[in-house]
Amino acid sequence: MRFMMIVKATTDSEAGVLPSPELLEAMQRYNEELARAGVMLGADGLHPSSSAIRISYPEPGGKPKVVDGPFTEAKEMIAGYTLIEVKSREEAIEWALRMPDPHGYGQGQIELRQVFEMEDLTDNPEAIAKDNALRQQLEEQQKA
């Protein structure tokens, strides 16, 4: 099972303030621990939203609306993520609880989300058949 530990943005991460050396060290130690347990699949940090854009579709079927960052409401944004592969939901929770407080000044927030995998999507044989038919159609179109 794959889980994503999402670290939420904070006023500091949005302002481009680097984490303290202590936090960086704790994070590195934690990442090493994940790797040494063989559960780490990947991790990335994101630039502040000042360099981001947001695409929205306010009208169904209409054109997309593009807004430049920065965006307000830091806690609605993400600052980074770590992807892990574990045997159970409980194991994922245990690892998430061991992640250091990602901010240290009161705004730290981690969200744990399970990643959809093929097994979850292929429980329904009808859906698989439809999916395969669609793929075949696309392949034939490509060949034509």
Binding site: S88, E90, E91, I93, E94
Partner: peptide
Amino acid sequence: HRTIDAIWRIE
């Protein structure tokens, strides 16, 4: 108990 199982697996 499920949490302990998970801890056991890790530790």
